[in-house]
Each structure stands twice: as structure tokens, then as C-alpha cells.
Amino acid sequence: MPTENAGIVSRMPGLAYIGLVLTPLFWAGNAVVARGTVDSIPPLSMSFWRWIIALAILLPFGLPGIWRHRQVIRQRFGSMLALATFSVAAFNSLLYFAATTTTATNIALINATIPIFVALLAWILLGDRTRPIQAVGIGLAIIGIATVVARGDLSVLTGLQAQPGDLIMVAAVFSWGLFSVLLRRQAVPLPALTFLTTQILLGTLVILPFYLTDLVLFSGGFDLSQDTALPLLYFAIFPGILAYGFWNHGVHQIGPARAAIFMYLTPVFASVLAGVFLEESLGVFHIIGGLLILAGLLLATQTGKRAGYRIKDR
């Protein structure tokens, strides 16, 4: 974008708010579209081709930066590979696997607890000080997750009868938490576009052997048609590239603390979209679990030391 246009955008904070509203809408759409198409596109195919498309779009813009900063990338290759594995490769692949056996609403509710996992892992791995009010918030959010996973029935947990997709989604959120904490510990001094393009490139290479194994031995891939191509384009463009750009612009304009509040819209949008397009209905356990998660997020993220994560891609 030309400098003069960038200056105009920076003087229009209203655009930042619009982008921050659209970002959770795109993330919610990621869960809903995945749930609606997972019978047509295997999860690993969904993850792999999403990033191939995103890479094809970004590479012409990001490749010059990769070349200019090749020395930094070479020196920090191990760190960047670990970051790409936990974010681009693991998080998204696990999310799409979760969509095979749980609802889009559950995915979005569990996904909303990412700040909790970041705070918890930052306390365990980085020694961040956790105040009592933050600990209460983390506890409430964990109870909220358990309520959603158990579907309001304690015997589901005690009898180990939880939906596999809910547990896989917890693993996905844990993976993103590890990425966020590692990003703080092993920060890589690269421009945003160069970092994102490199992460997608490395993450796609990590997914590749798993995708090929699944293609040959298990799923057999999918038939390319309008019904499968359009969801893949959505995954690549909207929750990937556009949400990333909107989020980072919003954080720059209004600050990370205020921008983080917009994350709470994701399960709201997801429940509405899932009700309209997938005919999913909200249960009492969704409402109770969602309120507990929301209360936990408010307590854990607005008091004390910030977890300090940035969302790169989802």
C-alpha cells in the first residue's frame, strides 16, 4: 500500500473497529464452514490446501522480504520451524479434525479460551506472575470448558465419554498457547509480512508428509468442485490473510487490550452462523459454559501482567 494511503488509513480508527468486528466473524466462519464441509474435504486436505492457496497469494509480496532477511531466517530456523509447527500446522489441522465430531459452536467456545491457555502456559513456562484474581479467572474458564465438553452432564467426564472433537479442540488451543509463549521467548526480528509468509511456508512443509500419508493410505483426498473449492478459498482468504491484516491493524490503532475484547464475539457469531447454516441449537450447557468462559476471560486478561501474544494466523 502506498505511504500516502497508509497515512490516510492510520488516521481513520473507525476502519480498525470495522476490521476488529470482521475478524471474529471470519474466525467463526472458519469453524462453521469446516463443520459444514468436513464430510467432503478430509481435515488434512483442508489444512494443507488452505495454506497452499494462502501461500500462492502471499508469496509474490512476501518473497522479497524472505530474500532480504534470509540470514535472520537461517539463524532462527529452528525457532521458526517450532513456531510454524504449533500454529500453522498443528492448530489448524487439529481444529479441522475436531470439526468431524463436534459442533461449530463448541469449537468456537473452546477456541475463545486461547488467552487463558496463554496466561497459564506463560505462568508455567515463563514464570509470569499470576495474581489471585487471574487464577480465579483461569479456574472459571476451565470449569466453563468442562461444562461445554461434558454437555452439562458430569457423568460424561467421569465416564470418559466426551466427544473426541471437543478434546481435540482443547489440544488445538493448547498448541496455540505454546506457539504464543514460544513467540515471546524466541521472538524473531522480522517484518510482519515476511514472518507470516515464512511461517505459512514452513507450516505447509510440516503438514505435507501427513497430508500425503492420509491421501495415499486413508482418505483418498477429495473431488475438486465448486462445493469444495469455495470453502478452501474462504479458509485461505478470510480467516487467514484478511483476519491477520485486520487484527494487526486494529492492535496498532487501539492497542492489544482493547482489541482483545473483540475476540469474545467469535462464539457469538459462531452460534448464530451455526444455527442458520447448520441448524445447530444452543443448549443450556452452552450458555452456562459460555458465561463461565467469558467471566474467566475478563478476570484473567484485564488484570496483572499481560500474556503478550499476537495472533498471526488461524
Rank of each mutant, 00 (worst) to 15 (best):
F246Q: 10
Y234S: 00
F238V: 03
A260M: 11
D227N: 08
Y244I: 02
A257Y: 03
H249E: 11
L242S: 07
H252F: 14
L224W: 12
G221L: 08
Q226I: 13
P231K: 09
G221N: 07
A229G: 05
A236S: 13
A259W: 03
F238H: 01
V251K: 01
P239A: 14
V251R: 01
F262M: 13
L265G: 02
Q226N: 13
H249G: 10
Y234L: 02
H249Y: 10
I241M: 12
G245C: 13
L230E: 15
H252K: 14
I241D: 03
R258I: 14
Y264W: 08
I261S: 05
R258S: 05
L265W: 12
S225K: 08
G240E: 01
G240N: 04
I254Y: 08
I241C: 03
L242N: 01
Q226F: 06
G245A: 07
I241W: 03
Q253D: 09
A260L: 06
F238M: 13
L224Y: 07
I237E: 03
G240H: 02
H252L: 15
M263I: 05
Y244N: 15
H252Q: 11
G255I: 10
Y234N: 09
F235V: 02
L233Y: 08
L232D: 00
I237R: 03
I254D: 01
F238A: 04
A243Q: 12
A257E: 08
I241K: 02
A236L: 04
Y234T: 13
H249K: 14
S225Q: 11
Y264S: 09
L224P: 07
A260T: 07
L233K: 03
L242R: 02
G250A: 11
F238I: 07
A259R: 00
A243C: 09
S225L: 15
A259N: 07
G221I: 02
G255Q: 06
W247T: 04
A259D: 11
I254C: 11
L230H: 10
H252Y: 03
Q226R: 06
G220S: 13
G245D: 06
W247F: 10
S225T: 15
Q253K: 10
I254A: 14
G245H: 15
D227H: 13
G221W: 00
L230I: 06
M263N: 05
L233C: 05
N248Y: 09
F262P: 00
Q253G: 01
V251P: 00
F238Y: 08
G220T: 07
A257R: 13
I241P: 00
V251H: 10
L233P: 00
P239C: 10
W247K: 09
N248C: 14
I261P: 07
F235D: 00
N248A: 02
P231Q: 13
F222W: 15
A243M: 02
L232F: 03
A236F: 00
N248P: 11
H252C: 09
G255C: 12
H252W: 14
M263R: 00
G220Y: 13
L224N: 15
P256C: 11
L265C: 11
S225M: 14
A236N: 08
A259T: 10
G255P: 06
G220L: 11
W247E: 10
I241N: 01
D227T: 09
